[in-house]
Design a protein around this nucleic acid. Structure first.
Lengths: 374, 374
DNA sequence: TTGAAAGCGCTAACAT
DNA sequence: ATGTTAGCGCTTTCAA
């Protein structure tokens, strides 16, 4: 019953100190690499550490340092408690299979979490964050915040000191989380500028420049009847990519561009492409505001007998794994997601390290990756 | 400089006790829902908690309870320190784009982490784990362990008490992590049976049954010249899917099945399909041991003028998001990844909760999802 | 049912 | 350069 799993408990500082014949404080200094310790003693302490198999207890350390040495990586939506899933993010299952995406037993499945990771974008964010954090001995705690309850739990988690700060990736314009976090005085950095202005640091991409690259590439290629599938127009990324595209096209003598709004999902890209094709059967170029929609567009184009890129050139955005999985592989505007995610982590850690209280933003430049589709 | 971010620090039990006019112990009891507390006092304590905005300090609690109330979710490989990436997991970038997958500044990018999340499988595991954990107030700490250094850090992290146990998803047969963890006497549960036997709990799929479903479907559909693209044959999942497929085919009068080994990546699926097609131009059915390879196979088949499913029927495995992203959508063997991941979390939490010291396994049954490709 | 008190393992003044 | 000591905020006997 009261059986301790570890024989006699894990070794503590006290044990090491006794073994090395010094005080706890000295051991602590050695373990934490503080100077002012006699090299000879240092060595004997190290041996004692090795001999006892000592590992510092995180909780004890956190209690006194008041740092968790952990940060939260939060993927947040904008839903309220009435629904597990945001109203404007319908399920993606396009076909009629009965329950391929159904709710499993024991809450094993809900649409938000399921769909989040179906988008290759999030995996890249995670990779970037982990790769920056790991050499620094930190690991992200993964959280989702798509309901108001979940948001409260995130704030509470931070307030408990379970994590020192948060990296937030919002999927919706109306996301209240950034405000909640800053109101609570908690350190956080966002991926992408928030739709509602807030005093909070973020990293972002020069979306307009990216759209410009796409427009110029399509024009240089000889396309003359060009349309665009936009992202959701209530989020900055969606707006900016459209604005940048329109501006460039207008400047090059194309004042009117057919558009169809998508939601950054493959399915929405398909729907948008269907509509564009119906209204403008003669188009010869398409700029999709992300790769997933570009892939959907390619499928629809092929189903309608158009060859890509011979009949219709397609340019995507993001350079996600979907771009390479597609046939032909997608010409796309590269967003350096991993680097951006790493920078986000860097900003947060700098802020936690002290001095730097300022709110800043770091904007990355996109680049064009030319492959087969345009 | 020594400016405290929070005015006068966060409220403690002491503060609440004073506000409510009771002792710390009583507040603690109320907060932890222990019985034996006068309902009236209970109420006044609750009010005091609300009034002060009290949140229990995790570190302090952990220090005394000796539980972190956190678990690690580890994605592990089999590399050593000489390379960041396992030798048998070559980069996937198929085309010649110079640096689409290059190493970014500041360790923002390494192949292992980058490729892990390019596979939709891992996202589903994460979703399943998070959805089980969250209602229980826990969140996974995400770790990667693809080098021996990284593995040591994982073990060390657990030994420090930063997490109470680990959920391990191995990507390679030779992964030493499970052994390291059990040797250290740390609680862990695996996703999938380890290639090297170990005293450790795991969840898994009845791979052979899944392969049988695929075989029977292809036969029922009228296919007679059927080949298979296998997974890596040094991992149980790869072996079992092949064995199940072969057995069923043999039993149905097909003693010889052409096979090509893949590595569960789309690119390897393409290569394998090229080879099969070259050697058996007349085949009319293909079973790919996962969806990614099935997608690759579909691309190659189309490039060779074969229609799917009219000329060649294709069945995949997993029912990942790739199955729906493909045209035609993939008929595939569904692996209930989210449920399995949730079960993995459940097994670990049960084990941590006490009594249940036993090593167990839970095997899930696959099901066939019929879509357009076969 | 409630309170008093003893630590959990560690760090950081402070004293030496 | 090293040791002594006082907590960090919480849970949990043990008394009352």
């Amino acid at each position: 019953m009261t059986e301790d799993p570890r024989p006699a408990g894990a070794p503590t500082l006290e044990d090491v100190a006794r073994a090395a014949g010094v005080s706890r404080a000295t051991v602590s200094r050695v373990v934490n690499g503080v100077r002012n310790v006699d090299p000879v003693i240092q060595e004997s302490v190290r041996q004692a550490v090795a001999a006892t198999g000592y590992t510092p207890n995180r909780a004890a350390r956190s209690l006194v340092t008041r740092r968790a040495d952990a940060i939260a990586l939060v993927v947040s939506g904008a839903g309220d408690d009435s629904a597990e899933e945001p109203a404007d993010s319908p399920a993606e299952s396009a076909d009629g299979s009965p329950d391929a995406s159904a709710v499993g037993p024991d809450g094993a499945h809900n649409s938000f979490t399921a769909h989040v990771f179906a988008d290759p974008f999030f995996g890249r964010v995670v990779a970037g964050v982990v790769n920056y954090l790991r050499p620094r001995g930190m690991y992200p705690v993964l959280m989702f915040a798509e309901t108001s309850r979940a948001r409260d739990e995130v704030v509470s988690y931070l307030r408990q000191g379970s994590a020192d700060g948060a990296l937030v990736v919002s999927t919706h314009a109306e996301d209240p989380l950034p405000a909640l976090i800053t109101d609570a005085g908690l350190p956080a950095v966002l991926y992408a500028r928030p739709a509602r202005p807030a005093r909070i640091s973020y990293v972002d991409l020069a979306h307009q420049d990216g759209a410009r690259l796409a427009a110029e590439h399509l024009l240089a290629r000889g396309c003359r009847r060009i349309a665009t599938i936009t992202g959701p127009l209530d989020v900055p990324a969606g707006q900016d990519r459209l604005a940048g595209f329109r501006d460039t096209m207008a400047r090059r003598g194309h004042p009117y561009i057919p558009i169809a709004e998508g939601r950054f999902t493959q399915e929405s890209g398909e729907t948008a492409m269907e509509r564009l094709l119906a209204e403008h059967p003669d188009l010869d170029g398409v700029f999709a505001a992300n790769d997933l929609m570009a892939v959907g567009a390619c499928h629809v184009l092929r189903e309608h007998g158009r060859r890509v890129p011979e009949d219709v050139a397609v340019v995507g955005f993001d350079d996600s794994s979907a771009a390479l999985a597609c046939r032909p592989p997608l010409t796309t505007v590269r967003q350096p997601v991993e680097e951006m995610a790493a920078e986000m982590a860097r900003l947060l850690l700098d802020r936690l390290a002290g001095s730097d209280r300022a709110v800043t933003s770091v904007i990355f430049e996109p680049s064009l990756v030319v492959r087969g589709s345009a």
